[in-house]
Design a protein around this nucleic acid. Structure first.
Ligand SMILES: [Zn+2]
Ligand SMILES: [Zn+2]
Ligand SMILES: [Zn+2]
Ligand SMILES: [Zn+2]
Lengths: 159, 159
DNA sequence: TTGAAAAATGTAATAACATATCATCTTGGA
DNA sequence: TCCAAGATGATATGTTATTACATTTTTCAA
């Protein structure tokens, strides 16, 4: 399954594929897939977990791609804006999108022990939240859904 | 309806009621409902909106109840831990619980224009998220559900 | 009642996360 | 070619949150 990413896998191939897809999408939309933007996405794809802006900045800095916070935040804003990366609100962190080929409402499973993050999908106006919104006349534009708990690896090893 | 709080109302009475309920609950559970904790909850009930820790600290400080960040964060941690207050992840802010009398999974509707916040409820493992969790063996302990959009007041007045 | 343990508070310092501003350079298109 | 929009460089600052340790207060059982 591609919906949940807790199992180990080799992803040198999928990093390449995702970068190529991102590049193509940018070309289509006439967006500039600049070196910093490309590298930030690549870092997030390679690490395959949520990373803070300053973690990413540290890597960029070591590579001579920029050392000040705006460098990282600008690249991340671009990637989030265009759906290549999601922001995880609970962690103040960022993760590469696992389903970049189609529009979706991301939802996350976040392990409180090992910090692994898996992305799945949800609906914009599911269940009671959607009902409450339409009852009150609230117009939902974006939904943050983030579940915290224990991943399969950690669930056996902790209280 | 009590589920959605976008309509105007007078709540001097409900502040008193909520404080009394909190006090009773603390007595039952043998928790210390100290002056700072009480006052922080009262502030959040009175303002009836999401507030940052430093907003609250400013008020506490003006009243001589403490001037350093840990004062506010400790009180907020206590109130969140015990279900009197919820943290709004998207806003890095806190709001008094609207349904303190029973256990629930809070969900929020957040107006991006006026910053009003309404609390409703949801299920711990709704829809696809729950399905993905059980498929992968992830054990959900807490869910953050926060919808961003336009409240009834603002939906007519903005693009 | 009293004394040890647990909980809460006071205080200082610092860490972590994020944005504002303005100058300069690059890119894409008329 | 030249302009305008977009991207980057660089400095400073703003905002949110935690660590650490000393002191006081509360709890609870001997
Ligand atoms: Zn995604
Ligand atoms: Zn784990
Ligand atoms: Zn609540
Ligand atoms: Zn509004």
């Amino acid at each position: 399954m591609s919906t949940v990413g807790f199992r180990q896998h080799d992803h040198t191939h999928c990093v390449h594929t995702a970068l190529a897809q991102a590049e193509a999408k940018c070309k289509t939309r006439r967006l500039q897939f600049t070196p910093v933007r490309r590298r930030v996405l690549e870092i997030l794809l390679e690490k395959h977990r949520a990373m803070g802006a300053y973690d990413i900045l540290g890597i960029l800095s070591a590579e001579g791609l920029g050392s000040q916070p705006p460098v990282a935040y600008r690249a991340l804003d671009f990637l989030v804006q265009n759906g290549f990366v999601h922001r995880i609100e609970q962690l103040n962190a960022y993760a590469a999108c696992a389903h970049p080929t189609h529009d979706h409402v991301p939802a996350f499973l976040i392990c409180r022990s090992c910090k692994a993050v898996a992305e799945t999908e949800t609906e914009l106006t599911q269940g009671r939240l959607g009902a409450a919104a339409s009852t009150s006349g609230f117009q939902i534009e974006r939904v943050v859904v983030e579940a915290e708990g224990l991943c399969p690896e950690c669930v056996g090893e902790l209280p």
